[in-house]
Each structure stands twice: as structure tokens, then as C-alpha cells.
Design a binder for these strands. Structure first.
Length: 560
RNA sequence: GUCCCCGUAGCUUAACGGAUAAAGUAGCAGCCUUCGAAGCUGUUGAUGGGGGUUCGAUUCCCUCCGGGGACACCA
């Protein structure tokens, strides 16, 4: 919040100058810091120290910024460091406390409609841990946009048409179950058995023009069953989609778009293709030699339809990064056909969830189904919780799912989304340190103080007077300062599509809070005013932890 | 072969071009008669190699080495 204010006031005073407001790693260097003097020095041909002096003067004289800082100092080789006044922090706690349930919200995306496409499992195929990853990342990005004021449309795009479906239906004909096994069986046969390959291609054609009622029935059964199954998972994961798009519905539209643009596409070996080489990319087939649309063509239809229905200002597509190159080609083609759509569409690739045994692939059948995975983690959680004293069997039952999901989600969100995660079930889902359960634990531990404080906790908001309270210990001020930065972290996480920035912030808050918790004893304090002020502080921390966890899709528990 | 992404403590990861490269974990040494020890304190330990741009490079450029991905009718 102060960060934004500094940036704003200084940018207004030095228009066009490029600079940043940083938060030094070492708190001894200040609460905030700026590098603007380096740039000013270069432009004005003076020393950084002299430029810094001008910056210091400006901030000190500024009616808004001046009173906020205890000191503003030059630091070699050219930084200007800002130290907040303790009294400012103390007074600000009251403000944070008042807004605590919505604290951190920022209006930067107010009035905008943002569409987020994520999860995207395919009917007839396994919902595996890769989809879990897409779901965790997409859901958090959606929530971040909501926290910054946008109206968010959650979208799920599902492949209920195409060759993979034909493979699955062929597998169903051979007696295999539609929730995965039929597809795996069909896919293997397609590769190994030329006879089967022909049959599957024939089925693909028939399904496309819906000419065979027996096949249609099999298809219908598998499709409905798959979708029902996915819905139970979304419920478990806490995702509610606004709109479901299906390939089967977008196929005709896609074909039409391709046919309408002979200037963009060309015929080659019986297929209709896009020559990506002209743009430093590669060629992709949009309509195959059988006249059927590929994924590429369907996606043209999809993106057009997205904008026709919802007119988003920004349309995000969250998928695994193995299709990054594919997306460049698609976006290039879109740029030529529907530039207004293409310019507002962005691909947000995430890394793969890797297992020690190698890449997960739904083609080789080496998938780890999401449910099996969650349940496995849950078993591990159970063992941990059983060692915990004072937690009844019933309480344990109630939270194991939340703890398991917290562990999984946090593991996926705590690092940069573009990078692969090597997932070892034993070690990746940690319960100590930088983990989801650690944050849940901190939340519960602090909540317990409030519960034990009883009436006083509820009354503390009335007792609390910022001008009179006695919060001045170093950790207390650092905690308030940390909370002050919450909204800028949310803004940064949103703009960079970096949930890990938020995760790391929350871990920092929890660490400070735990350190604080261990350094003083709140409830036994005989100075009522100080005790009340500390309870306000704790209640504020709890609220922000809860809010941050909610953005990450993690349940804040009172007992764990 | 061409294009894209990635190489940071033993391991898993941070760092909008900024200061002494930050955490977790593992290791070592400590802290429970007080609000929840899944915690806290201390400690050992790192930018793949070589050039360049810059006041300043983990970050940008070139090159080499190593890993992953994509590259015509799958998604």
C-alpha cells in the first residue's frame, strides 16, 4: 500500500523516469527502498548521492509521504531507503483490522471481465494429477483477479470429439470401462495394430457425422458418465465453472472459419494447413485429409465463441507447457483471422508434474489418477494426525481432506508455475516448514489464542485505541509492516500470474507470527490495554492468513 | 537437424536489472511446570563453464556443456 503510494507520487514528480520501489531483504536497510537516484543521476549528469539528496528532499516535503516516514536516507551506491514511523504502523493496524475480511483487495481490474480457462480434462480419459495442477493454478489465478476487482468467468474446455474419443469408443466395444481403461486400450491398439487403427478411424468419421446410432449410444453413455465423474472432483476441489465448452460443439464453427480464410490457410496433401514457418513457427494441420477438423480448428471456434458470449477484456488459457509451441502457432493464425480476439488472449503455461519414474503420460497409460493421488496423500495425513494429542477421531475425520488438499495445492503453487515439479509422494507433500499444513497450523494456533481469550477477544475491538495502545516491540511492528504489503503482493501475483509470490508472502507472515507467538505470552499479560492491543494484532494476522489461504484455495482451519 | 524452456546450498525451490543471493528440507547444536513443539533459536552450505552489455547481472546478449519439450493430419 505504501509501496504503491511511493511509486505513484514519485512517478508523478519524475514522469518518464524508470524506477522501482523495492523491499530490502534486510530490514535494517529500511522498510522500502528505491533505485530512482541511479537513473536521475545518469539523466542529469550528477552523482547518485546528489540525485538521492533531491529524492530525499522531495519525499520529506511531500504532504502525503512526509509524515509517514521516520527517516529517509541515502545508502551507497545510490539507494534511497525509507523507514516507516512506528506510530504510523501502530495507527495503521486499526485500519487493517477494520478491513480485515477484505484486506488486500485492490481495484486495479475493476470493471474488467476476465475469462480463465483451466483444468480441461477430456471425457473418456483419466482425470489425472496434471489436471489437478491446472485446476490449482487456474483457480488461484481466477481468485486473484476477483481480489483485484475483475468479474471472472471460469471456463472448462473439454474434448468430447476427435480421434481419442474414437479410440475410447472402440475400447468400449471391446468391453472396457469408459472412465479411462477403454481409451488406454484403444490408444494402444491404434498404435500397435493396423487393423484396429482402420476401425478406429472409421468410428471417428461415423461419430463426427453421427451416422451410427449404436456408436452414438456408446458415446453418449461414456460422455455423460465422464462428465458426472468430473463434477464430483470439482466439488471436492472447490471449483465452480461458469461455462463448459465442448469440442463437439465448436467443430463445425472451426471448419467454417478455416474455409472462410483461404488467404491464411492452404491445401497440402489433402489437408488444410497453416504455414507457421512464415512467422518463425512450424506448420500445423487444421483440417485433416478426411475433412475432419483437428484440435487447432476447433480451438479457433472456441476462442471466437468465448468472445461472442462474454466479451472478456482478457482471456487466459491455463495448460501444460508441452503445448506452448502449438499455442504460438494457433495465436499467430488467430492474429490474422480475428486480431481483436488474439490480442486479448494469453496462454498461461504451467510445468509438468513429474514422477520419479518419468513423464506422466495419458498415452502410455502411466497416469496417476487425481483421486487415487489425493487419497494416497490423505492416508499419509491420517498417520500424522493420529500422532496429534487432543484431536478427536471425529475432528480428524473432518479435516484430513482439507489438510491433504492443502499439502498438494501448496506444493503446486509455491514455485513458479512455468516450472516442472518433481513429485515424490513421500517428500513433496511436507508437513513442516514451507508447506500448506504449516500455514494451516499457524492459523489454528493463533486462532486458539483468540478462542481462549474469550470475551476479551471479542471486546478487544472496542478496547483498542490506536493512539493509546502499547505495541512497539520490533516483531509487532514488523508484523504490521508485513501486512501492509499484502495488497501489493496480490497485485504482483495477479499481474505476473505468479501465485508463488503470494505463497511466499504468506509463509513469511506465518514465520513472523510463529516467532512472535513464541517470544511473548499474550494471555497471561496483566496489562489489559497491551493485551487487548495484542489480541487485535493476532486477530488481524489470523484474518489475513485466512484470506491469503482462501486465494490459494486452501481451507483455513481452527483445529489441526 | 530446427525452434522453445530450464541449469542457484546434498535435495526441493526464491530473488520486478539492485545492496551481504532468500527460504524449506537434510546435517549439527540448543529450547516444552505458561496461549497448540506440524513450532522456535543458532550453525554448516550455492548462481554449470567462458566471453560481453551495465554504475550494478542469478536476471539481458553471444558461445560451449548438461536436462526437458515441440516440430503434418493426436490432444
Amino acid at each position: 500500500m505504501i509501496q504503491g503510494l511511493l511509486k505513484h507520487r514519485m512517478a508523478a514528480h519524475w514522469p518518464g523516469v524508470n524506477f522501482d520501489i523495492l523491499i530490502p531483504d534486510d530490514p535494517a536497510l529500511g522498510d522500502y527502498s528505491t533505485n530512482i537516484a541511479f537513473t536521475l543521476a545518469q539523466q542529469q549528469h550528477q552523482s547518485p548521492a546528489d540525485a538521492a539528496e533531491r529524492v530525499i528532499q522531495f519525499v520529506k516535503d511531500d504532504a502525503v509521504l512526509g509524515p509517514v516516514f521516520e527517516k529517509v536516507v541515502f545508502a551507497a551506491p545510490g539507494f534511497v531507503n525509507f523507514f516507516l514511523k512506528a506510530s504510523f504502523l501502530q495507527q495503521h493496524l486499526a485500519d487493517i483490522y477494520r478491513k480485515r475480511s477484505a484486506y488486500g483487495s485492490s481495484p486495479i481490474n475493476k470493471g474488467k471481465t476476465v475469462m480463465v480457462e483451466y483444468t480441461d480434462p477430456n471425457p473418456f480419459k483419466q482425470f489425472h494429477i496434471g489436471h489437478l495442477m491446472s485446476n490449482a493454478i487456474g483457480e488461484t489465478i481466477a481468485r486473484l483477479y476477483e481480489a483485484t476487482g475483475a468479474k471472472v468467468i471460469r471456463v472448462n474446455w473439454q474434448g468430447d470429439a476427435g480421434l481419442h474419443i474414437a479410440m475410447a469408443v472402440w475400447g468400449m466395444q471391446k468391453g472396457h470401462d469408459y472412465l479411462g481403461p477403454a481409451y488406454t486400450f484403444g490408444a494402444r491398439a491404434y498404435q500397435d495394430n493396423p487393423e484396429a487403427k482402420k476401425e478406429i478411424e472409421a468410428i471417428n468419421k461415423k461419430l463426427y457425422d453421427r451416422s451410427d446410432s449404436k456408436l452414438n449410444m456408446l458415446y453418449q453413455k461414456g460422455r455423460e458418465g465422464s462428465l458426472r465423474h468430473f463434477e464430483t472432483l470439482y466439488q471436492r476441489l472447490g471449483t465452480k465453472f461458469t461455462h463448459y465448452f465442448f469440442e463437439s460443439e465448436m467443430a463445425p464453427r472451426g471448419v467454417e472459419i478455416v474455409r472462410q480464410h483461404p488467404d491464411v490457410f492452404e491445401a497440402s496433401e489433402g489437408a488444410t494447413i497453416f504455414r507457421g514457418e512464415k512467422y518463425g513457427l512450424h506448420t500445423r494441420v487444421f483440417i485433416n485429409a478426411q475433412g475432419l477438423p483437428t484440435y487447432e480448428a476447433k480451438e479457433l471456434g472456441l476462442n471466437q465463441e468465448k468472445f461472442r458470449l462474454y466479451k472478456p477484456d482478457l482471456s487466459l488459457i491455463v495448460t501444460g507447457n508441452e503445448i506452448t509451441e502449438y499455442f504460438k502457432v494457433l495465436l499467430q493464425a488467430m492474429q490474422l483471422i480475428m486480431p481483436e480476439v488474439a490480442s486479448r488472449t494469453r496462454h498461461v503455461p504451467h510445468g509438468m508434474l513429474r514422477l520419479p519414474s518419468g513423464k506422466m503420460s495419458s498415452r502410455t497409460g502411466e497416469v496417476v489418477p487425481a483421486e487415487q493421488f489425493i487419497d494416497e496423500v490423505k492416508t499419509y495425513v491420517d498417520e500424522k494426525l493420529a500422532q496429534r494429542e487432543g484431536l478427536s477421531t471425529k475432528e480428524r475425520e473432518g479435516i484430513r481432506e482439507s489438510v491433504a488438499l492443502a499439502a498438494i495445492r501448496y506444493t503446486m503453487l509455491r514455485q513458479g508455475i512455468g516450472r516442472d515439479i518433481t513429485f515424490d509422494v513421500k517428500t513433496a507433500v511436507a508437513f513442516e516448514g514451507d508447506s500448506g499444513p504449516y500455514l494451516q497450523y499457524t492459523h489454528a494456533r493463533l486462532s486458539a489464542v483468540l478462542t481462549k481469550a474469550g470475551v476479551l477477544a471479542r471486546l478487544s475491538r472496542y478496547v483498542y485505541r490506536p493512539s493509546a495502545h502499547t505495541l512497539n516491540e520490533n516483531l509487532e511492528l514488523r508484523l504490521i509492516k508485513h501486512m501492509l504489503d499484502f495488497s501489493s503482493v496480490i497485485v504482483r501475483s495477479t499481474q505476473l500470474h505468479a501465485p508463488n509470490a503470494l505463497a511466499s508472502y504468506l509463509h513469511g507472515l506465518a514465520t513472523l507470527a510463529n516467532r512472535y507467538y513464541e517470544s511473548i505470552h499474550i494471555l497471561s499479560d496483566e496489562q489489559t490495554a497491551r493485551k487487548a492491543a495484542r489480541l487485535v494484532l493476532v486477530e488481524t494476522i489470523v484474518a489475513i492468513l485466512k484470506r491469503g489461504l482462501d486465494l490459494l484455495g486452501i481451507r483455513a482451519l481452527k483445529r489441526i
